[in-house]
Computed example of a mutant assay.
Amino acid sequence: MAGKRAVSRNTLPDVIANDLRERILSGELAEGEIIRQESLADEYDVSRMPIREALKRLDAEGLVQFTNNRGASVTKHSLPEIAEIFDLRILIEVDLFRRAIPAMTSTDFALCYQLLEEMDASYDANDVGKWGTLNHQYHSALYAAADRKLTNDVLQGISLHSDRFVRMHLSVMEQREPAKKEHRDLLRYAEARDVEKACATLRDHITRTKDALLRLVAENRALAGDQAN
């Protein structure tokens, strides 16, 4: 048997990638914004190597567009692409929810109620970043009983992109109360094992968010003089 092999644990690129990811999701780094490696290296007080590694990871996630010779920029989705992100969410999440509801246990419901309480607290504190994380955890908890690992892996990547726009939606538009009600309705129908009402509510919930976001993004881009879709 071969001897033990040394494994390099590059934690610094992970830390930088996590921070940059959050800055992109929160809108601090805006869509289309040029990311200069030299500036980031100075900001994080590191060499350019971990910056490059972090950007490559975000490129793999689709949050930045990175090339060796041309640098990087924050990914900017067209309006049809944004619509597609939410259409994919509807297809995948409704299927997962339909499969999960008959298998949900008291433990699943208890976790969902706990997350709802934490979401309400983040609403009241106007902590959009924390709400975004809890929103993702809540939806994941609703679907966990479906036990569809490969489908969930696909959904993770899609949710990462939708989270950018969902946070924008919550921070700019007064949609808190409808979202709170819909989240509780989803759990109420799931507890009642009413699959059809639960899935219809989920479909309407994501569609409403999609339609509002497309209007918001289109208006913002028009105000900025951006003629591209």
Rank of each mutant, 00 (worst) to 15 (best):
I24Y: 02
R5V: 11
G62A: 03
K210R: 15
T151E: 03
L91S: 15
P102Q: 02
A125C: 07
R176T: 15
A200L: 13
T75M: 12
D45P: 14
P50F: 02
L25I: 00
D163S: 11
S39N: 13
L29V: 05
L187V: 14
I34L: 15
Y44K: 00
G62L: 03
L214P: 01
E219H: 08
R89H: 05
C112H: 07
R167V: 02
K4Y: 14
H169M: 13
W131R: 15
E191C: 06
N135E: 15
T67E: 06
S39W: 10
C199L: 03
G132S: 06
A146Q: 02
E22S: 11
R70F: 06
P178N: 04
W131K: 14
V166L: 10
L202R: 02
Y113A: 12
A72G: 05
S171L: 07
E93W: 03
L115S: 03
L134V: 02
I82S: 03
E31H: 00
D95M: 07
N126R: 13
A125H: 06
D95L: 08
E177N: 13
R70T: 14
S73M: 06
G132M: 04
R184N: 06
T105L: 04
S39E: 15
G3S: 05
N68T: 10
D147G: 10
L91D: 15
T133N: 10
L116K: 05
A121K: 08
L79D: 03
N69R: 14
M1Y: 11
D14F: 14
T151N: 02
R167C: 01
A83M: 01
N229R: 10
L115C: 03
A72Q: 05
R176L: 14
A200F: 08
Q137E: 15
A54I: 00
T75G: 06
V64A: 01
I206E: 02
K180V: 12
K180R: 12
A141L: 08
A144H: 07
A224C: 12
D19Y: 04
D120C: 00
S8A: 15
T67D: 09
E33V: 03
Y113S: 11
E53F: 09
R89V: 05
A125S: 10
Q175L: 12
Y189E: 04
K149T: 07
Y113R: 12
I16M: 05
A110F: 06
L111S: 12
S73K: 04
A103V: 09
A192T: 07
A121H: 12
T107A: 15
E81C: 07
P102F: 00
F165Q: 05
H205I: 03
S122W: 02
N229W: 14
F165M: 00
H169W: 14
P13M: 00
Q37G: 08
A121M: 04
L216H: 13
V7H: 12
N69V: 14
R52V: 11
K4I: 14
E53P: 11
Q114M: 08
V64P: 07
F86G: 01
L155E: 07
R164P: 08
D87F: 00
S8Q: 11
L223W: 09
V74I: 04
I82Q: 02
L214R: 05
T207G: 13
D42G: 07
L88V: 10
I24G: 04
N18D: 15
A144K: 05
N229Y: 14
A198H: 05
L160H: 00
I158H: 08
E31A: 05
R193Y: 09
Q65P: 07
E191A: 15
